[in-house]
Design a protein around this nucleic acid. Structure first.
Length: 596
RNA sequence: GGGGACGUAGUUCAGUUGGUUAGAACGCCGGCCUGUCACGUCGGAGGUCGCGGGUUCGAGCCCCGUCGUCCCCGCCA
């Protein structure tokens, strides 16, 4: 228990400044500060405390010689006590200036102090330099959020949201809300369901995104909509995935892709500027096919160089890869000479993914004289760089077999890049490399269900010239979709939508919905498309991921005030929790007991 | 659903081949200290070694199970 300390009332006392505001220019002013006791240094006759609020830290000094009663009261102060202090701003002498804090030129000589509240000893240190296990931080999140590190992240998030609203509003976008209690959509992620009390047995679903509603808003004539909106997906959690996450969602009428890019690029310029970084539009662009052929992934990290197909440089019968499949040269700069063990690790990693990895260019040079020189020329790999060749070992796999090879090579490239990042600083987190990826395929093959599923979502328009491939060759049908990628992270995803009912029906049927099914699931959208739906399209950016990267974090939990654990638990409130019998009865729900 | 890492004082960690009374730092409590700013100094308290079972003369350490946190795969239209 905290010691018994007589508390004071706040009354009509007001702050004059924040704890981060005072400078030498304020010398001599009478001020009132309020905040938390960050650190206390009791030197006997004089007590220093650092008083903290979200704006910063200011030193307050209590001198016994000036006021014995006040000094005695200050002796009771402990970490995280909440106090108000009135006193005079005094300039510190040159040797006493603290260069580590912005208010370090001054201190407050306390004349009055109000003890507003005590605090238990915090469950973990408030200091920034101390790492604490995440479960402790989440259990006492209200304390963790008080630490300067989290306060910076939360404030940065607010700043970025404000910047988004300002920029989009100034571009003529309207902020419009859409419902959270809506209808379950098939495909996509698992929905969170909300039972209806008035209609037992019926359920609302929380939106995985406001997709259909924003399309309906376009049909309703609200050109240029945006929303900073919570989305819900019941899938397993990760460092960059939570059940609830926030999208910067927008949609416009009559756009070409170009207009979406021209909306987002200045937005991201402004957002980065708000975080203190300069990025320059236009961002580079590449097609999905180029991304796969150069990086083996649809979200290339441009901080590492691309890989290159090089099978054409070798004799046709070289046998380094399966016939008809690519041989890939992977180049990681500046790694220097790797040990036997390190190279074996790379080979093993590739082998587990179906690749045969050739890690020794000299040996290949012996078997195929002159070829490595050409490979180095194509890749730009120097003598001090890592150069790996990778071919496919097994039977060709998948509907787009060359893609399977590129994907494995892409994983190997990232594995190697990240592995040597620490040593060689290949991946600077403050080197922001935005990228547009265009022309995704319309469909991906789902092995489990043995059918095509929409790669983006089933409202994405096929490219005009690929329209007939919807039925004839779905594997090669391209979509008018685009992703914005930042340093290997998918930041956002969008598309030009289908605005014609006939095409929408074709797409539903391509992903295996019967007419009746499509009507039951999306009848209202199909109907709406018949009432004058304009061409429209948009995009949604993951706000959590954006803030995460700009804050230099590697988990979105660091930029979400109250996140859940990997098992979906809130360690503070202990949600989820059982519903009581009365709640269940009202909802008409009977629990199915686990077997046994 | 699968793989991996971790769990010891309030916190962060160490703990040898299985062997005496489980340690350190920070924090906390008390004393001293009038210029500190991660104050200093002297002293003190603080442990269900996540939980349950097993092996053993003996378990923080070995085995089985279980719970929790983190990372990855699957999953994420």
């Amino acid at each position: 228990m905290a010691q018994q300390v007589p508390l004071d009332f706040l009354g009509d006392l007001r702050r004059t400044h924040s704890c981060g505001a005072l400078r030498a220019a304020n010398e001599g002013q009478r001020v009132v500060l309020m905040g938390w006791v960050y650190r206390r240094r009791d030197l006997g006759g004089v007590i220093f405390i650092h008083l903290r609020d979200r704006e910063g830290v200011t030193q307050v000094v209590f001198r016994a010689e000036c006021d014995g009663n006040l000094h005695g009261k200050a002796e009771m102060l402990r970490s995280e006590y909440v106090i108000a202090v009135e006193g005079l701003v005094e300039a510190r002498t040159a040797e006493n200036i603290n260069p580590n804090i912005p208010t370090g030129e001054v201190e407050i000589v306390a004349e009055k102090m109000w003890m507003l509240n005590t605090s238990e000893t915090p469950p973990f240190p408030m200091e920034e330099h101390v790492d604490v296990n995440e479960d402790m931080r989440l259990k006492y999140r209200y304390v963790d959020l008080r630490r300067p590190h989290m306060q910076r992240n939360v404030m940065l998030r607010s700043k970025i949201s404000l910047e988004v609203r300002n920029e989009l509003s100034s571009q003529g976008f309207l902020e419009i809300e859409t419902p959270f209690m809506t209808k379950s959509t098939p495909e996509g992620a698992r929905d969170f369901l909300v039972p209806s009390r008035i209609q037992p047995g019926n359920f609302y679903a929380l939106p995985q995104s406001p997709q259909i509603f924003k399309q309906l808003l376009m049909i309703s004539g609200y050109d240029k909509y945006f929303q900073i909106v919570r989305c819900f997906r019941d899938e397993d959690l990760r460092a960059d995935r939570q059940y609830e996450f926030t999208q910067i969602d927008l949609e416009m009428s009559f756009p070409q892709e170009e207009q979406i890019f021209q909306t987002i690029e200045p937005l991201l310029e402004k957002v980065c500027a708000a975080a203190g970084y300069t990025v320059k539009a236009p961002f580079p662009r590449m097609t999905y096919a180029e991304a796969m052929q150069g990086y083996g992934i649809d979200k290339p990290d441009l901080r590492l160089p691309r890989f290159w197909p090089v099978e054409d440089l070798f004799p046709a019968d070289a046998g380094l890869t399966r016939e008809g499949l690519p041989l890939v040269a992977i180049h990681i700069p500046g790694t220097g000479v790797l040990s036997r063990k390190e190279r074996d690790e790379l080979k093993d990693y590739g082998r587990e993914r179906g690749l045969t990895v050739y890690d020794d260019p000299k040996r290949l040079e012996r078997d195929f004289p002159g070829v490595i020189e050409k490979v180095r020329e194509r890749t730009g790999a120097g003598e001090n760089d890592l150069l790996l060749l990778a071919g496919w070992r097994d039977e060709p796999k998948g509907q787009r077999p060359e893609e399977t090879v590129y994907q494995a090579c892409g994983q190997l490239r990232l594995f190697a890049g990240q592995k040597y990042n620490d040593r060689h600083k290949l991946l600077d987190p403050k080197d922001f490399r935005f990228l547009w990826v265009l022309d995704f395929p319309m469909f991906e093959w789902n092995d489990e269900d043995e059918r095509w599923v929409a790669a983006h979502h089933p409202f994405t328009s096929p490219k005009d010239e690929d329209l007939e491939k919807l039925t004839t060759n779905p594997a090669r049908c391209r979509a008018r979709s685009y992703d914005i990628v930042l340093n290997g992270v998918e930041l956002g995803s969008g598309s030009i939508r289908i605005h014609r009912q006939d095409i929408q029906s074709q797409v539903f049927s391509a992903v295996g919905f019967s007419q009746e099914e499509a009507q039951a699931r999306f009848g209202y959208l199909l109907d709406a498309l018949t009432y004058g739906a304009p061409p429209h399209g948009g995009i949604a950016l993951g706000l959590d991921r954006l803030v995460m990267i700009l804050a230099g974090e590697t988990s979105i939990r660091e930029v979400i005030p109250f996140p859940k654990t990997a098992k979906g638990t809130d360690l503070m409130s202990e949600a989820p929790a059982p519903a009581n019998e009365r709640q269940l009865r009202e909802l008409g729900i009977q629990l199915r007991r686990p077997q046994g």
